[in-house]
Design a protein around this nucleic acid. Structure first.
Length: 348
DNA sequence: GCAATTTGACCATA
DNA sequence: TATGGTCAAATTGC
């Protein structure tokens, strides 16, 4: 499987790179090895992310693929963050000495404003103050072995295996793009304090995003997008996938204008899945979903949407062979089921 | 009606 | 006082 292969490859490469280190200039080589390892893991991460939307189209192992991909992405994401942090550490000031991991503040839902519907404005503000004070305490007491924040630069910042809910956006001085603030979707349910910031880099082509994480997830819902079928919905995995894509729309518009602006001007309802941004210079772009997506579609229809979208973005008639070569995600080896179903594009 | 996003305001910090 | 992070009411979309 491509996930396993990519992950394994990255691990092997990372291990080899990490093992490199002579006596003459150990520090330099170690740094180079670290950089190489980070590069390899980052490559694996991007590769898996690029393939994820397509793997999810396969009919049979749909939930399994989704779960595995989410876990693989999360593992790589964490590994990448740790490695980059380790690489940076010599330049960083020493962390706080006192580690008091036990200083857990009260969960958000215990705030006075939330628990008392009759609370007046003063009480609400008191609650907010208390929460913020507690937050400051948590930040100050953060453990020595746990950095207060960590992050990485990526072209695909919106899908990392976790589910995030946006709670703010801010124009940051000296930057062209706003910074978006996300918190774990399950904060209220599980008290998970994980947050995430996404800041698009100025003048990067293709668009690159600085992603900064704060706090580890405690919700234990890494693969939360795979929802057990409760009978109310015929396919919750698809529903979750649709939710993911809808969440990405505001940012997808931005990316779309920087990658295929001319094409998308002619097809306004389309939304580009950022996880499938094609290689730089590619004339094709893979899109999943559009505004007419309904609750009733099935895997077959999703696949059809992908195909249709690809065709719609092409002004000239699509030549299957050339397009598949151009965008290596569509290969016979990786997506036999998809090609079996949609291998012949003649009728489009 | 519900859930997610947007956005202006508030607050802490440097 | 400027700036960044967060809140929560308003808005939007399903």
């Amino acid at each position: 499987m491509v996930v396993a292969a990519a992950a394994e490859n990255s691990v092997v490469s990372s291990s080899v790179a990490a093992a490199v280190g002579g006596d003459d200039d150990e520090r330099l080589q170690s740094a180079a090895a670290d950089e190489g390892a980070v590069r390899e893991v980052a490559q694996a991460y991007e590769l898996i992310k690029t393939h994820q939307p397509l793997l999810l189209l396969l009919q049979q192992p749909q939930q399994l693929a989704h779960s595995l991909l989410s876990q693989a992405l999360r593992a790589l994401n964490v590994a990448l963050s740790v490695m980059k942090l380790r690489h940076r550490r010599p330049q960083q000031p020493p962390p706080a000495a006192a580690a008091s991991n036990g200083t857990e503040a009260e969960p958000p839902h215990l705030s006075p404003s939330a628990s008392s519907p009759a609370a007046d404005l003063g009480d609400r503000h008191a609650g907010i103050k208390a929460r913020r004070a507690a937050k400051r305490r948590r930040i100050n007491n953060f453990g020595e072995d746990k950095p207060s924040s960590w992050g990485h630069l990526t072209a695909v910042p919106y899908e990392d295996g976790y589910q995030w809910r946006k709670y703010g956006e801010k124009k940051i001085q000296g930057t062209s793009f706003t910074r978006s603030y996300f918190r774990c979707t399950y904060r209220d349910d599980n008290g998970c304090q994980a947050t995430k910031q996404i800041q698009q880099k100025d003048g990067s082509d293709p668009p690159m995003f600085q992603v900064t994480y704060t706090k580890e997830h405690t919700c234990n819902l890494a693969a939360a997008t795979v929802v057990p079928n409760n009978g109310d919905h015929h396919d919750d995995a698809i529903w979750s996938r649709k939710t993911m894509l809808i969440k990405q729309e505001p940012h997808a518009d931005q990316l779309a204008t920087t990658t295929v602006s001319n094409d998308l001007d002619e097809t306004p309802p389309l939304h580009v899945c950022q996880d499938a941004v094609p290689p730089l210079g590619s004339k094709n772009i893979l899109c999943i979903g559009n505004t007419s997506v309904s609750d009733e579609f099935d895997d077959h229809q999703i696949g059809q949407q992908v195909v249709e979208t690809m065709v719609m973005l092409e002004e000239e008639p699509v030549e299957l062979e050339a397009d598949l070569d151009y965008y290596p995600c569509f290969s016979d080896d990786l997506y036999p089921d998809l090609l079996l179903q949609y291998g012949n594009f003649d009728h489009y």
